[in-house]
Design a protein around this nucleic acid. Structure first.
Lengths: 152, 152
DNA sequence: GGAAATCCGAGTATTTTAGTATGAATTGAA
DNA sequence: TTCAATTCATACTAAAATACTCGGATTTCC
């Protein structure tokens, strides 16, 4: 029940772009440095995100990537699906093209996995990049206040 | 975001044992036939379940496996954790021994994965084998009624 | 004793993961 | 116009995980 690094790293990258939304295109190299990820590997991930229409690229010097829509209009669910494919604890309950199983009529575990799938999707689809940015702001302030109290 | 066959098949096996709860020990071979799984592979899965205290074994001829507790007292969550380890979309939010990450203080995606983890756990921990047996009964009746109406 | 089972450890083909490597194409700026 | 920064594309690969199979030892009912 584990995400691969594609979804894990890809979300970090998209969050990074969200935090710089509204400025110039962000080169992947700077994302890689800030998020401590391999630049070459990130290239492959961002390619999927571009093909899914979630980011736009600007080629050449001073180029980079920008979100295709404002952060409030991109959900974590879209990002994860673009990177990892349809959400599905098991293949027979995939969101699209579920794999047919000859026991489908009476398979009870299917009911369990459908509920798990829906519960995951509900969480992921309810969180936007803008939400994450707000969380980041909050934590930033908390940390600052904490440091001040300690006399830092 | 996918379960391995361990959790997938293991739950089917436990459900099979639940449906036969209260009778003699059930040999793995019959479980394998009914659920259409490899017997040898099931052996490995049931070993984990036994070590986790979810099933008891009876060795020798006429032996087999029985649930260690009544079906209402065994949740899907326990079964999945026994087979797949702690629930964790990513390692840094594992239910036990989360893997430390040097960005933990300000990593926002962690918040997302914690919510996903909790949401999965809530579903799995809320479903018992007895619940699954009830669902099976319901579906069985539905199918029978449907067949009758069709004049089967 | 023999058959039916569990128990145990080793082996293995395939797939997935998590990248690396190489280089071509594009474009802003000096 | 050249250079450097950047995206884009494809191929490759080491390591790990997956999903088993295999062989045999042990236990126990009949």
């Amino acid at each position: 029940m584990r995400l691969s690094t594609r979804g894990h790293y890809g979300l970090k990258a998209m969050f990074d772009l969200a935090q710089h939304y509204g400025t110039e295109p962000i080169p992947l190299k700077s994302v890689a440095v800030r998020q401590n990820l391999s630049e070459h590997y990130l290239e492959q991930l961002i390619a999927r995100l571009r093909k899914a229409g979630l980011v736009k690229s600007v080629r050449g010097a001073q180029g980079g990537y920008i979100l295709a829509r404002e952060p409030g209009k991109i959900t974590v669910g879209e990002i994860i699906r673009a990177l990892e494919g349809p959400i599905a604890p098991v293949d027979c309950v995939k969101e699209v093209e579920p794999k047919e199983c000859n026991q489908a009529d009476y398979c009870i575990s299917r009911i369990v996995w459908t509920r798990v799938r829906d519960s995951i999707a509900e969480v992921l689809d309810s969180i936007s990049l803008a939400d994450m940015c707000r969380d980041a702001e909050k934590i930033h302030h908390q940390n600052r206040d904490f440091d001040q109290k300690r006399g830092g």
